[in-house]
Amino acid sequence: METLHFRFEDGTRRIAAPPQLVGVVGSGNLEVLIEPVPLGGACEIDVKTAAVGFEATWQAVMADFHARWQLADTRIAINDMGATPAVVSLRLDQAVETMTGGTP
């Protein structure tokens, strides 16, 4: 297992909803826990993944996600069992849409 941490500053979209869990950890899938927390306008994402050695790919997917949503004061925890980047993006979008009811 590998643990990665990403932090994006100066988000503009705050969410005000109870924490949400989206997805299921299983063969080739992942779960996303998203929750509002005071982080001085930042968005923090912690990833625990079985796919070791893909930090650059995770960085690209997380940067793309942050560019779409611009979340502030949000913590996201991802538990991954080898999901593809497309599935990661889908689950992240589903988690935010569950919290906001909207699109980027």
Rank of each mutant, 00 (worst) to 15 (best):
G101H: 14
H66V: 00
E2A: 14
F6L: 03
V47W: 09
L33W: 04
L4C: 05
T49M: 06
I34D: 11
P104V: 11
R68W: 03
V52L: 13
V52T: 15
T103M: 02
I34F: 08
I45Y: 04
V37K: 14
G26L: 10
M1E: 11
H66L: 01
W69V: 13
Q59F: 10
A17P: 02
F6S: 04
R91Q: 14
Q70A: 10
A77R: 15
E35G: 06
A42W: 02
V88L: 06
H66Q: 14
T49Y: 06
G82H: 10
F6D: 06
L33Y: 04
A16S: 12
V24Q: 13
D46E: 14
P85R: 10
R7D: 03
Q94P: 03
F65W: 09
A83R: 05
T98V: 13
G41T: 00
I78F: 02
H5D: 04
L4N: 06
A67D: 14
H5F: 06
C43G: 07
R68M: 08
V47Q: 15
S27A: 14
A17M: 08
V25T: 11
F6P: 02
N79V: 05
E97T: 14
Q70T: 04
K48Q: 14
T57W: 03
I34Y: 07
R7M: 03
E97K: 14
G102W: 05
T57A: 13
G101T: 14
G26P: 12
H5C: 04
A67S: 09
G40K: 01
L90A: 12
V32S: 09
A56N: 10
S89C: 13
L4F: 12
G26H: 13
V22K: 05
A17I: 02
P104D: 10
A42S: 14
L21A: 09
E2Q: 15
Q70D: 11
A51I: 06
L33I: 10
I76E: 11
I45R: 08
D46P: 03
A56M: 08
A83M: 09
T84W: 02
E44D: 07
E2S: 14
L90R: 12
Q20K: 12
F54H: 10
E97Q: 10
G101Q: 15
H66T: 00
A77F: 08
E55G: 08
Q70C: 06
A67I: 03
A63T: 10
V32F: 03
G11H: 06
L33T: 12
R75E: 04
A72F: 08
F6T: 04
A77N: 12
L92I: 07
R91D: 09
Q94R: 08
R75Y: 03
P18F: 07
L90F: 05
G53C: 10
V61H: 00
T3P: 01
D46I: 13
E55V: 09
I78M: 12
G28V: 07
G28N: 10
W69S: 08
F54V: 09
D80P: 09
